[in-house]
Design a protein around this nucleic acid. Structure first.
Lengths: 190, 190
DNA sequence: TGTATTTCTTGAAGTAGTTCAAGTTTTTTT
DNA sequence: AAAAAAACTTGAACTACTTCAAGAAATACA
């Protein structure tokens, strides 16, 4: 089932059938159990993960020992720590499956080999990365300009189906407020 | 003076002399005055800006009418709104020179033409974008885990020379606290 | 060089959130 | 179906910041 990735790639570039074949032969799908980690703090990240099905998250453990989610990834998203990946330095993050997920794990050596055979893919990864960076900037804008309650309602409006999929405390930390406060917002007690 | 960009590119990929020539012939340096805007909220962003010299910032105006800086860019940084650029939608941001700056303004049409002639550059832009995204994730981590005072000292330690270059109120908003609070942190009154 | 503008400082009052602790509900596993 | 674990709720006390207002200092530019 690499179809999902091929389809995603073809939103941005056009592959020759032969190129699609090369790509398919290099990829394999793995299943990740709920709560399983694909990256731990301190590890050097050398793998990109493309989510075919399911939900992953990138999180940290703060000084009080509480998890804080920095990023969610769902179907058709790449999730990884690019800073650790490019600089070969220990990651600050954990990456974990929120629900049972199917992903394509693409390690650095394999990716470099693929990029030599299909240089066109550089373009695909460029565009994906630029859009991700753009999205991160919008995220910072929302964190800066909206109150906790506004962030909750805004997220809820944009992603009503997604809110059902993750525990509230994870979403609360992603929106940068406490799980208790989330509870009060939902109950209208704020 | 395109040297700065060529040097930056050659940190990531190797160009043939002929490719460097093509590139040079497509670029021109412009000078931007202090406070001059290269992007306004509501405009579609179709240009990437490479900073050769000086300092630029991306900011918004919040609901209280106050400017909040989301991103600074200095020598050897690209600054743009990639989401507006890729989706051809109105930008949420202003991009402005903090000090008199020399930049290479690369518009979409020119860039696409260059990328056709020198596809290798896709790789350069990919790596730059991935590292930028990685940096944005770290920025979110710091915003989430550190107190205002910790963010100030952390930033100060990492970028002592930079802190001298920008007004404190801009840095305060970048670190997500008020100018008044910054003043108190600096005076040790907190 | 002088004047206008921008930037920085200070204290007092207010508030949007956090933290803690305990109980309840829901979900998962056996 | 029962037991265990995970997730959610509630109120009371607290605190890290903001806002406002006014004056002082620094910087820009005519």
């Amino acid at each position: 089932m690499h179809k999902a990735l091929l389809q995603h790639i073809e939103k941005f570039i056009t592959l020759e059938p032969s190129e699609a074949d090369i790509l398919e032969s290099c990829l394999n799908v793995t299943t990740i159990k709920r709560k399983e980690l694909v990256l731990q703090e301190g590890q050097v990240c050398d793998t990109l993960h493309f989510i075919i099905k399911g939900c992953m998250r990138q999180y940290i453990i703060n000084s009080k020992g509480t998890e804080q989610t920095l990023q969610f990834g769902i179907e058709n998203w790449w999730i990884t720590d690019y800073l650790s990946y490019h600089n070969t330095i220990p990651s600050h993050f954990y990456i974990q499956a929120v629900e049972k997920s199917e992903v394509i794990a693409l390690d650095k050596a394999t990716l470099e080999a693929i990029l030599i055979q299909i240089p066109k893919l550089e373009r695909y990864f460029r565009i994906v990365a630029q859009k991700s960076f753009g999205a991160a900037q919008m995220r910072i804008k929302f964190l800066f300009t909206m109150s906790a309650e506004e962030r909750y309602h805004h997220f809820n409006n944009l992603n009503p189906e997604f809110v059902q999929r993750v525990p509230q405390y994870m979403l609360a930390s992603y929106l940068d407020f406490s799980a208790e406060f989330m509870s009060k917002i939902r109950a209208g007690k704020v």
